[in-house]
Design a protein around this nucleic acid. Structure first.
Lengths: 149, 149
DNA sequence: CTTAATATATATCCTAGATACATCTTAAAT
DNA sequence: ATTTAAGATGTATCTAGGATATATATTAAG
């Protein structure tokens, strides 16, 4: 279970912009700060623009800033728009589903509800929550209770 | 956001075994029924055995069956043990984390809590729930509210 | 009209998931 | 004892997609 690095970068960019309030920030500044490939960030920024999260101005003295107040941007909303898909099981995509028990299987709805719980939890927080109170909004989480092999 | 096909297959196998009660089932039978590569299923079954979910008997008249009652097997538990990792963000794996804001960033805990909500939701259901009442345990879920590009 | 910035398209690298194949081990049936 | 049907195990290959690089176009301030 993973999110793409793409989503990760998108969140970092938005977080940075939220901290800068309305200042214009350039992609180069972001690349330097995060030590991330500028080329990769270009795509991230471009799509954040298409999704309406940021405003970009070209040319000299151009740059990026949030298109809306950070407190109106839900974390879940960002993740929904940056992840390429949410096909947790084969049956989640009817166009490609080949599973022979889809018709009667109830796993789909269980997993779907879990996904909804995941996104719902993310929707409890805004970008402003993340920007303003680093490591304070939430109780520290315990060590990961996941058993792996 | 995805689970691996591997996890998907694991759940299907367990579901099948749960429906067969204590009957012995062969890998070939599973491969035929699900129309899945037998070779791939071999690995899935092998690991389900290692994880203690199933008992396997070799040789003629051999086969698989659940190692414990289906009602004692939580869906979340299965997913936790079949997914190779849960590294939703780069910072989730301290060994490889390169993110420069990990120290102060609160995104990690938010995403972590969402993941906990995901697995927690799955832990509300057992394999027996899935096997016994196909498409009845849960309210039908609405069309997916995810905005994609 | 130059320059510094973003916009956009294309191409390549690389990892890991999905799959195939070959061999070994076990144990029941004869 | 031998055969045979089953799982166990290791290795190899295919392939998609995520990550990255490169090149060029476009914009607008100065």
């Amino acid at each position: 279970m993973r999110l793409t690095l793409y989503t990760d970068y998108s969140l970092r960019v938005l977080l940075y912009l939220a901290n800068k309030e309305d200042e214009l920030v350039t992609i180069s500044e972001l690349a330097d700060f995060f030590k991330i490939s500028r080329n990769h960030l270009v795509k991230v920024v471009h799509n954040l623009g298409l999704s309406g999260y940021i405003l970009t101005t070209r040319g000299r003295n151009g740059g990026l800033k949030l298109a809306r107040p950070a407190k109106n941007i839900l974390i879940g909303e960002v993740v929904r728009s940056t992840e390429p898909d949410f096909d947790l099981l084969e049956c989640f995509n009817p166009a490609t589903d080949q599973c022979v028990i889809t018709r009667t299987c109830s796993l789909k709805s269980v997993i779907f509800n879990a996904q909804a719980a995941f996104l719902g939890e993310l929707d409890r927080y805004t970008l402003a929550d993340m920007a303003k109170a680093p490591k304070k909004v939430l109780p520290a989480f315990k060590s990961i209770p996941i058993v792996q092999h």
